[in-house]
Structures are given as C-alpha cells and as structure tokens.
Amino acid sequence: MLKEETVRALEQTARQLRVEILKMLNTAKSGHTGGSLSAIDVLTVLYFHQMRHDPSNPKWEDRDRFVLSKGHAAPALYACLAEAGYFSRDDLKTLRRFGSHLQGHPDMNKTPGVEVCTGSLGQGLSQAVGLAIASKLAGRSARIYSLLGDGEVQEGQIWEAAMAAAHYKLDNLCVVLDHNGLQIDGEVEKVMNVAPLGPKFLAFNWHVFEVDGHDIQAICQSLENAGEIKGQPTLIIARTVKGKGVPFFEHKASYHGVPPSDDELSRALEHLGHS
C-alpha cells in the first residue's frame, strides 16, 4: 500500500495535468479531449510513480518504456512528458501547430520521451511486443508498458499481438486498457461490442487484473502486482470515464475529438479548482 501522502500527491499531479490537457486543447482548437482525460490517472501513475525513466537522458538504455497505442490521447502523454521535464511546459501551447514538435499524434523523431510513432489504432501493441522481446534479448530488466483504448481492440492486429505476447511469454509487458466504453461513433457496445474483455485476454493466455482507472492507489497496486507475474503478459482493464474530471464532458462520445471552447475551459478549470 502506498502512503496516503504519496497518493494525495499523485492525485494533485493528475489534477494539474488535467488542467494542462484542457488548456493545450483549447489553445490548439482541435484534438481529443475525452480519451485524454480518461487516461490521465493511469499515465500519472506510470510517469510519476511506476516507471524507471530519466527525463534528462531520454535514450537511457535501461529505461522502462511506454507506448501510447491509443495515440489520439497524445495531449495526456505530452502533459506527462512536460511535467516530468522532457521539454518545457510552454511547448504545450504549440500542440498541433505548424512547426511544433508536438504533433497531432505521437512522433518519436520529434518529441523527446516518445518511444514510437502511434496514431493508427492497433499498431502500438505490436511495437510494444517487439520492444519487450528486444529488452529480453538484450538482457535488460526494463519493463514495457502500453495503453490501449477499448474501441481500439476492434482492430484485428491487437489480437495478433495479444497472441504473440503470450506465445513469447512476455512477462515484462504490462498493458493497460482504458475502458471508458465510448468511441467516436458512440458506445463501444453498440458500435461493435468487444465484451467480455477479461475473458478474451484470459483465453489468449494473459494474466488479467481489473481496477478502477481513476483510483490512484488501485492503479499503483495493480501495476506492482503485474511485476510479480511470471511467464505471461499482463492486462490491466482500467474502468474509466471518458472526459473524467469535468462533469459536463463525462460519459460523452461527442467530446471524443472536440476541444473545450473558451467558456467550457473556464468552467472546467473552476471544477478542477484552478482559477
């Protein structure tokens, strides 16, 4: 169990990162709000508690690596990378602008701290599998983390990769599934039902945990538990709320790819206790 003050500090960081996400999306006037907010608690725990990484040395060989397979949540990733010190927080204002190193979707050749290029759904997990194999081949103890969307698992490639990760017994691979239940066209269940997710991955020979994806303590615990699993990759199904933290964005597919307006931003910042 984490100390209460550690949990509080991570919650405070996550709240601050929600503010950064909303501000950068408002400035950019385009981008993906809902899925960035649903994912930010998991990313906060990964970047500020779980992963071994060094922002002053982004290419450190023994670092843990994170692959944002649901690449459209780039604002959440960029907020974490800026907060960690990979680049200046001022850069967040340039999101999606011509000439910015912060592309609409993550680009490993432009942004320090981004490990691979993602954005075309379904492709990040395969790359995470390759990274996990490479880590084992090199005899490194580094772990590979990846975040999937629940709409994303409709892509067939996810299941090809899931098969391979179990086949190669990648116990250094831990995947979190941001299960917010919504995709652009509506409820995942109605667009193309992916349930039951846990049994599917279990049948693919993964170890599966399920947690509240906004409960910092629970996320920390499940990531730690994943490290104990031997001979299998781990999936953590994080039950989340799309738009989490801003009541009028929550549970709304319509905010999948829409940024907050000026008015919505000021009301959202009020909710987050940020004036």
């Binding site: 691979v116 395969s126 599998v129 390759g130 990274l131 081949l137 090809e160 990769a161």
Partner: peptide, 17 residues
C-alpha cells in the same frame, strides 16, 4: 499474422535490434 510481424519488427528496431 503479417501486420503484427511488421509491428513487432518495428518494436525490435526501436529496442536496438
């Protein structure tokens, strides 16, 4: 599973292979 093969290859390259 050719799609995953190419993705795994990308990850292996990103890992220095």
């Amino acid at each position: 599973a050719e799609a995953n093969m190419v993705g795994m290859a990308a990850g292996l390259a990103a890992g220095g292979m």
